[in-house]
Design a protein around this nucleic acid. Structure first.
Lengths: 128, 128
DNA sequence: GCAATAGGGGATAAATTTATCCCTATCTGA
DNA sequence: TCAGATAGGGATAAATTTATCCCCTATTGC
């Protein structure tokens, strides 16, 4: 695994939450686990844009941060289930607030994001 | 500026919010602007760990995403003020929820984060 | 003339995060 | 016997994000 070279600042609350939630797929992982998609393969199907590898890595970090637990069943083929810890569950309302905000503003968000992506394409065209 | 090579997915709400809030300092910028720290130099003082450069870049992105507006006063030395747009203000309750959660769990968060950082240091020691 | 102030930005390096590719293991069913 | 399902991880490449360094503008005050 990657070993940090720079020690993170943990001054304020926002630094702390960043440490545990900052990862492209983490919020979604927590959300889907809460919805009952507990097995790695299920989570992968729910998040097809992420590679298996990254999901494993991010799940492991969530586990280290005590937001989820991993239960390995000694069967073949292997079966693994993730669940939210009590601590992890306290995040659900927060993530729900994020989700609700983005749902409410979905159209506008899509609009401003695409505008920005395209304007950088345009820059590109002007240069070449 | 950096030109994306991979077009982002904008399938669900969480993709969208990621596009506008995913940036190390963005949430804090929005928060502090809302608290009344509007000038770039003030924001820098509030966020001393970020370089001036990155703050400029992230502020520009927030502006492109219509979460903040920038007002340039034609005076010397220059004076600039950022404000939240109406759209940006709708994010305040969401950010407040994030902040409240991390404040409530501050000790535990610090604990699990440090534990994780140290365990990777330990790995390092064992190897060498 | 020179420093200080306030705000910006290009170029490049470093850090970090994601993606890709490939390999392991075991049983089930065709 | 071979593919498929299920879970995992090492090595490495690519993408992306942050950090550093240095330079520019114009005016005020000494």
């Amino acid at each position: 695994m990657y070993k940090r070279k720079i020690i993170p600042n943990l001054n304020c609350g926002l630094d702390l939450i960043g440490e545990v939630l900052y990862g492209k797929w983490k919020i979604r992982l927590i959300w889907f686990i809460n919805e009952g998609y507990k097995r790695p393969s299920e989570l992968q199907r729910k998040i097809p844009d992420a590679s298996r590898r990254v999901l494993n890595i991010q799940l492991k970090e969530l586990e280290e941060h005590e937001l989820v637990t991993k239960k390995i069943y000694p069967v073949v083929p292997p079966k693994v289930e993730y669940s939210l810890t009590g601590f992890g569950k306290t995040l659900i309302p927060v993530i729900a607030a994020l989700g609700q905000w983005s749902d409410e503003h979905e159209d506008r968000l899509r609009d401003v994001i695409l505008r920005q992506v395209m304007s950088s394409d345009l820059d590109d065209t002007l240069i070449s």
